[in-house]
Design a protein around this nucleic acid. Structure first.
Length: 213
DNA sequence: TCCAACATTCGGTTACATCA
DNA sequence: GTGATGTAACCGAATGTTGG
């Protein structure tokens, strides 16, 4: 029960966060518990019979008709309330109370449905985030390998040029094609600066992702 | 326009009935 | 007998309506 209440409170908090202004009434502040009200016991009905009459379960037929009316319209105008009450042989006050409680149950159910939908969406987002993170790791590994390859080539070029500095057949760094690895990921043709963060200034790990989460 | 009285709604709570 | 659960009834506050 307590767990259920906590969950419901979480739902409310979550939905209140997502839909500010939905709940216009001020929620009790945490840390200042509201004093518990004691309900008056059997106001004006001390006998057992009176108490039993005061709290009796509505019959299936009564509930059925009430449900039917609630399905048509959640609000209850006084005319409809009186008509329903006389049809059901109930006090109009009972009909009003039933509608109040029914609206509360309906609202709770909607909140639970909403929570469940949001939870599903959230789970999907988490899965996608993990997938993207692992893709980022793979890409970073490929960048490292490409850098090593560039480094090797540069050293080879340096070796050749120091042996024959005037040779016209020497490969120059400027003339070299850029490493093709970016094209592998469908980004060929983009300005390479988009992905360039400067040598030795890669953001470690996945910290950069936190900027967008 | 203001204000008081009354009605209605809502969120929260309590008390009772029922069931496992 | 007991705890969990569902629900009728109640309470207090907020809000709406109406008449003077």
């Amino acid at each position: 029960m307590a767990t259920q209440m906590n969950e419901l409170e979480e739902h409310m908090a979550l939905i209140s966060q997502m839909y500010p202004g939905v709940y216009t009434q001020v929620a009790p502040q945490q840390g200042e518990p509201k004093p518990r009200r004691r309900r008056r016991k059997n106001k004006g009905a001390d006998s057992g019979a009176a108490a039993a009459a005061k709290k009796r379960k509505l019959s299936d037929e009564q509930v059925q008709l009430l449900e039917l009316n609630f399905g048509n319209e959640h609000k209850l105008e006084s005319e409809r309330k009186d008509r329903l009450a006389s049809e059901l042989g109930l006090d109009p006050r009972q009909v009003a109370v039933w509608f109040q409680n029914r609206r509360a149950r309906w609202k709770n159910k909607k909140l639970e449905e909403e929570y469940s939908k949001l939870k599903t969406v959230h789970e999907g987002v988490v899965v996608e985030k993990c997938r993207l993170e692992s893709e980022v790791l793979k890409l970073k590994e490929q960048v490292r390998e490409a850098e090593k390859e560039i480094q090797g080539l540069t050293e080879r070029i340096d070796g050749v040029s120091s042996n024959s500095p005037s040779s016209s057949s020497v490969l120059s760094v400027e003339a070299m094609e850029p490493p093709p690895f970016l094209g592998e990921f469908g980004v060929q043709g983009y300005d390479q600066d988009v992905f360039y963060v400067g040598q030795n200034s890669y953001i470690q790990g996945l910290e950069w992702m936190n900027l967008f989460v």
